[in-house]
Design a protein around this nucleic acid. Structure first.
Lengths: 110, 110
DNA sequence: TTTCTTTATCGTAATATTGCAATATTAAAC
DNA sequence: GTTTAATATTGCAATATTACGATAAAGAAA
């Protein structure tokens, strides 16, 4: 035991959970916000922006990439990372739907 | 090592990460979706809805509650759980802002 | 009061995550 | 070719998460 039972849930539930999990760390939130802030996509200075060692940042970037939240293009010996809009639209739509449904049913129980 | 360095990030970043982390498991997504689906707030049958043992579900509910995503009221010997709208509005606003900013800057690099 | 029902907690095993030093890789610069 | 710069990978220790059986707690029902 200890492993998540992903096969018992729907594909959509697992997908949203994967996206949320990838954002479930302040360093990865900080990375996303930095990628959003900078205009250029040559993001070689992410490491300098974070209070973490280079291998740790590299690992966080890998997780964001695996989850589909960011994309990375090789640009010489640097790497250009940027946000994958599709993933964020998916999240916005998901939470938008929930808040809309909540407003409709005006759950006044608790 | 192994512990997240929360003190190096902003309060807001930590807050969003906490919410995202709590949703970073398919069982907890399934719980949220079930709470959204049922009309009544007497939610004593969450366990039957999930492919997990009762202690495991109880633990997941605890985590959702700690993160502020759900509220629980005692109702006799049952417990009435429901979604805390404020947390979901926070998430919707956060991701809404990001997608808006992304649309404005139309990051055409990758 | 005894029993049933519902939910929480404890204890514990299996697994995953976090963080970093050391090292590897890869391409530009010289 | 050698050095430099940027990023990735490996290996490992510390910690956290996931899952569940056993048990506890507490009100409802008998």
């Amino acid at each position: 035991m200890g492993a998540t039972k992903t096969d018992h849930f729907t594909e959509k539930q697992n997908k949203i959970a994967t996206l949320a999990k990838a954002l479930g760390h302040p360093a990865r939130i900080a990375i996303m916000e930095y990628l959003l802030k900078v205009d250029t996509c040559i993001c070689g200075d992410i490491v300098n922006e974070l209070p973490l060692a280079q291998p740790t940042v590299s690992q966080h970037l890998k997780e964001l990439k695996n989850a589909g939240l960011i994309k990375g293009d090789i640009d010489g010996n640097a790497i250009c990372y940027c946000i994958d809009e599709k993933a964020l639209e998916k999240l916005q739509t998901y939470f938008g739907n929930i808040t809309t449904k909540l407003a409709l049913k005006k759950n006044n129980c608790c």
